[in-house]
Every structure is written in C-alpha cells, then in structure tokens.
Amino acid sequence: MKKIYVKLLFVCSLLLIIGCFRYQEALTWLDFQYQVKQQEKIVQVQTSNQVISIPLEEYLIGVIAGEMPVSFEKEALKAQAVASRTFVLSRNLKVDNTTNSQVYLNEDQMKENWGKQYEQNKKKIEEAIQETKGKVMTYQGKYISALFFSSSNGKTVNSEDYFTGEVAYLKAVDSHWDTSIDPHNIRKKTFTKKQLADIFNVVPEDIRVTSHTSSGYVQQVTINQKTYTGREIREKLSLPSSCFQIEFSSNGYTFITRGNGHGVGMSQYGAQAMALENNNYQDILHHYYQNIEIESIDS
C-alpha cells in the first residue's frame, strides 16, 4: 500500500511540474500574442521622401495637431481622435501625410506651429487620445471609412454625391452650426476668362450650374455645353468646397463658396459646436456617422 501512495505522489508531482511548465508556456504564448498585437499597431506613413514607422497612439498626436485646431473643445478633439484612429486602421495602418489620407505633423513642426504653447497643446491632445484609447467605429463588424472635413454649407453630403458608390453610414445630416461657427465659411475666388481658358482649354462663353445635390452642393456645371461635376470644378479651380455660386462681372467669374472640404462624414466645426453645447464625443460621432458602433480594439 505504501508503494502505491509513493507512486501516486510521484505521478501527482510530475503532473504538477508538467502543469507548471505548460502554464508558463501558456503565459509566454499569451505575452507573445500581446506583443504581436502591439507590433501590428505601427503606422507606416509615406512622406515626400521616405516611409516612417510610428506607434498608432503616438501617430494620432501628430494627426490631431495637423487636422484640427488645438483650441477646439476636448470632446471635439476626442471625436477627432476616434475618427482618425478608425481611419488609419481601415487602411491597414498604411497612409501618407497629406490630405489624401491624414495630415501628420512631426515634433519639430508642432514646436514651430505652437511655440511657447507646445507643451500645453501637446498635453491637451495626449489627454484626448488617452481618454479614448483604443476606441474605434465599426459598421457591421468592420472599421468604417471615417471621413471628415472642415465645415459644410449647413448640411453634410451623401457619400455617393461626391465619391463613387453609396456608403450606408456616410449619409447627409444636419450641420447647421457650421455656417455661423466657421469664420471663413463663405469665401470668394475670381478668375479671368484667360485663366479659365488655360484651365479648361476653351474660352468660356457660357458657364452655369445646372443641378444640385439634395444637400445643396453643385452636382453639375456646363461650360460651353460641356458638362463637369461639381467635384471636378472644385478640384480644377482649387475651390474650398463644391457648394458654390458663380457670378460674372467685368473682372471675370467669381465663385462664391460655402464650407470647406468634401462635405462627407464628420464636420470638424460642427463637432466643435456640438461640444460647446455639452455633447460628448460619442454624441458627435453618432450624429455624423449613421448607425455605427463605438468599440474598443484593446478589449
């Protein structure tokens, strides 16, 4: 009987030792997976002459600094943090540092822009990022294309009215705040006939807006019977917005624009106005992106 007890004790001890090894292996495996997960959150940013690698949360500091006035309310900055984090994740962490993706400022550029306010401004942005750490927007389980822009004409634009294809969560919504809160919401830009002739390869004799989107942005323009989209006119003439009127005078053609940006997704000035009305960042995001979920990638 004593031999049986000894054998049982030996077997139990052996199992305990093996279990400890396996437990340690499990911890090592989990730690490895965590490290892999962290390593995956490295953003590859294409600059004019090189690709730089930046940890995601650090990258967001430079993006918010480049994309939104640091004077904006904390909740607006937090909404921008979640939108920018989602945007870069939806593009598999590979972006450039222009408005084609998201403007990114490095440390030196932030110091140059902010001067003596550098430490204070950076801390404010870091707090907005930390308070939304890991938060992203999804639609049907996938990261959304979290488009944003500066200000609208009072209403945002359906995705299909500016870009190609309908996107369920990028639908036109009210953004009436923009027309009063954005100090540069209305702008004017004048072109002579010769300047337009050089751009369109034809002397303009008849320019007119022929249709608008449901949000009041220009849908089509004809120049001497040739049709262009509002987006094409905006891009060819470098206009702030595709919401414009055209006035003819002895000086040439004046394009009077409302808003700044493509108009799809979140209005940054609208986000600021909503924050001033005591809305939190979730309220802002749910207003501008329809039927989305706000989730955490770190959970």
Results as ranks from 00 to 15, higher is better:
residue 220 Q to G: 06
residue 25 E to Y: 14
residue 51 V to D: 03
residue 225 Q to R: 11
residue 276 L to T: 03
residue 166 E to M: 00
residue 89 L to P: 08
residue 160 E to S: 06
residue 277 E to Q: 13
residue 285 L to W: 05
residue 298 D to L: 14
residue 217 Y to G: 01
residue 227 T to E: 15
residue 94 K to H: 15
residue 255 F to A: 04
residue 30 L to C: 08
residue 193 K to M: 02
residue 91 R to Y: 11
residue 189 K to N: 08
residue 48 S to I: 10
residue 104 Y to R: 02
residue 214 S to R: 04
residue 22 R to L: 10
residue 236 K to I: 05
residue 267 S to D: 10
residue 177 W to A: 11
residue 288 Y to A: 00
residue 233 I to A: 00
residue 168 A to C: 00
residue 106 N to T: 07
residue 62 G to C: 04
residue 165 G to L: 00
residue 134 G to M: 03
residue 290 Q to Y: 08
residue 221 V to K: 01
residue 76 A to Q: 00
residue 127 E to V: 07
residue 49 N to F: 04
residue 293 E to R: 12
residue 236 K to P: 04
residue 82 V to K: 01
residue 30 L to M: 12
residue 48 S to V: 09
residue 262 H to A: 11
residue 247 E to S: 09
residue 169 Y to R: 03
residue 247 E to T: 05
residue 194 K to L: 14
residue 193 K to S: 15
residue 108 D to A: 13
residue 243 C to R: 00
residue 139 Y to L: 01
residue 124 K to Q: 14
residue 56 L to I: 08
residue 82 V to A: 03
residue 153 N to S: 11
residue 242 S to A: 14
residue 192 T to D: 07
residue 67 E to G: 02
residue 49 N to L: 02
residue 187 R to K: 12
residue 223 I to P: 09
residue 194 K to Y: 12
residue 219 Q to S: 15
residue 297 I to Y: 10
residue 232 E to M: 07
residue 41 K to T: 01
residue 140 Q to V: 03
residue 295 E to Q: 15
residue 284 I to Q: 09
residue 182 D to N: 09
residue 178 D to M: 03
residue 203 V to D: 12
residue 195 Q to D: 11
residue 19 G to M: 01
residue 215 S to R: 07
residue 285 L to D: 11
residue 234 R to L: 01
residue 162 Y to F: 15
residue 81 A to D: 09
residue 40 E to R: 13
residue 25 E to K: 12
residue 225 Q to E: 14
residue 123 K to A: 15
residue 3 K to E: 15
